[in-house]
Amino acid sequence: MSLNHDEVRRIARLARLEISPDEVEGTRARLNGILDFIAQLQSVDTRDVVPMAHAIDVVQRLRADQVTETDRRDAYQAVAPETEAGLYLVPKVIE
C-alpha cells in the first residue's frame, strides 16, 4: 500500500492539519516508509485471534449519575485563546 499526493492531502484534511504544497512530497515519502514497515503485520496468520484492545481485562466502571464537578468555568476559560461573557469564541459557522 503506497500513498500518492492526493491521498496525503486527503488524510491531512481528515486530520485537520494544513499541509503546504512543498510539504506533500516529503510527507508522502516518510509516511510510505512507515507504512512499508508496518506492512509486515499482514504476513502473520491471525485467524481466530481475539483482538486485544487493552492490557488489563476489566469491565468499565460505572458510577451514580450525579453531578460531581463544581463550576470552574473561569479557571478553564482563563487559558482559552478567546472568550466573551463566559463563551468560547470561534469564527462564524452559520450564516
Binding site: L3, V8, I11, A12, L14, A15, L17, T27, L31, I34, L35, I38, L41, Q42, V44, T46, V49, V50, P51, M52, A53
Partner: peptide
C-alpha cells in the same frame, strides 16, 4: 497522519484490528 490513515474508512480492519490481534 498515520493514525488518521489506519483508522480511516476501509483500512480499520487491515491495520488497527490486525495490530490488536498481534498485540494479543
Amino acid at each position: 497522519l498515520i493514525g488518521t490513515y489506519v483508522l480511516s474508512h476501509g483500512y480499520y480492519d487491515a491495520y488497527y484490528v490486525k495490530a490488536q490481534k498481534i498485540r494479543r
